Simulated assay, not measured.
Amino acid sequence: MIAAIFAACLVGLAGIALYLWQQRSKEKERPQMPKEWPLLPRLLINSKERRIWVWLAKVMYDQQIMIKLPVTRFTIPAQREEAEHWYNMLNRVYCTFTICGLDGRVIGCVDVPGAAGLSMSNQTLKYGLLSQCGIPYWVVEPDNLPHMSQIRTAFLGDGALRANEQDRMDSRLKGVADDLHAAVSRQRTNKSTTAHEHHGFEPTSPPPEGPLTEGWEQNSFMAPLDSRGAELRQD
């Protein structure tokens, strides 16, 4: 009897020791905050995106332009219990620019294709998702800009451009177009000069962007803020 009790105690102590060892191992596996972060600042947009940014700032002069905003930041799942599923699917999806009004309501999204272009599946996903939310989606190239009246009408409606603003905006956009062409010319000249100085080799391109973070533990897609939940939802 005593031997059985003694054996049971040994088994219990062994179990406790194993549990403590496992907990200590888990603590060691947790990433520690570094004293010095191995990171450097980088530009938020590239030169091609910056040209569209400048153009949008002139065309959508009365709106706000957000850069690379995830779609989960301004959408909400219809069924709250499915939030985690849709968040895991969409938390890496974003458009180059998101245009919104001063009330925080998104009125349109613009994508600028990268060096490798923009896949049709990517465009189809965003177009389908955003159009169902009533948000126009455009893909814009710096060398093939739409007329300002087209994009303002698409994003703001038929009354977006008053007749007395047409001449003023055309003049403003002409200046923007001239600046964009000048910027492209300077960039090509600089590349040619640099290539010549380096014996015909083109300068190396910036390193590709790394993967986006996994998201927030607490975010407005999973648990929308009370201060804006009702106002931004539409039937």
Rank of each mutant, 00 (worst) to 15 (best):
Y61H: 14
T75N: 01
L90R: 13
A57L: 06
E214S: 05
L18E: 03
K48E: 12
T72Y: 06
S47P: 10
Q64I: 06
G108W: 00
M1Y: 10
E231H: 14
E36W: 01
G108D: 07
R80N: 09
G157T: 04
Q218R: 09
C9V: 11
E197T: 06
V59R: 05
P38A: 15
T96V: 09
P38M: 08
A163N: 03
Q132C: 15
D111I: 01
G117I: 08
C95H: 01
Q187K: 12
I76T: 12
D226P: 12
E214T: 02
L56N: 03
M148L: 06
D179Q: 05
H85R: 08
T124P: 00
S185M: 13
L40M: 15
S192L: 14
L20A: 07
L180D: 15
L90H: 04
Y87A: 07
W86R: 01
Q234E: 04
R172E: 05
Q166V: 05
G159P: 01
I16C: 08
I52W: 03
R24E: 10
A223W: 05
A177G: 03
M1C: 02
Q166A: 10
S220T: 07
M1K: 02
Q64D: 13
R30E: 13
I76F: 01
L39F: 10
K126W: 03
D179V: 09
G104M: 05
S205W: 03
N144G: 14
V110P: 05
T193A: 14
S131Q: 09
A8K: 09
E49S: 10
K58F: 03
V54T: 08
E49P: 01
V110T: 03
D170A: 04
V93P: 00
R188L: 09
H196Q: 11
A182G: 08
T72E: 14
L161V: 09
H196K: 13
H198Y: 14
M66E: 13
P136Q: 15
S119R: 11
S227G: 15
A4Y: 14
A3C: 03
D158A: 13
A115G: 06
F221Y: 05
P208K: 09
L212D: 14
L102V: 04
L180W: 02
R50E: 09
W37M: 14
M1Q: 09
L180P: 01
G175C: 04
S25M: 11
Q22H: 08
R42H: 15
T98G: 04
G12M: 08
T96A: 10
A14P: 00
L145C: 13
A163E: 14
Q32W: 02
W21Q: 08
N122W: 02
N88M: 07
Q64R: 12
K126S: 11
K28N: 12
T194Q: 12
I45M: 04
F6D: 07
Q23P: 00
L43D: 08
Y94T: 09
D179L: 07
N190Y: 05
L130V: 13
L10A: 11
S47T: 10
V176C: 12
P208W: 13
A78P: 00
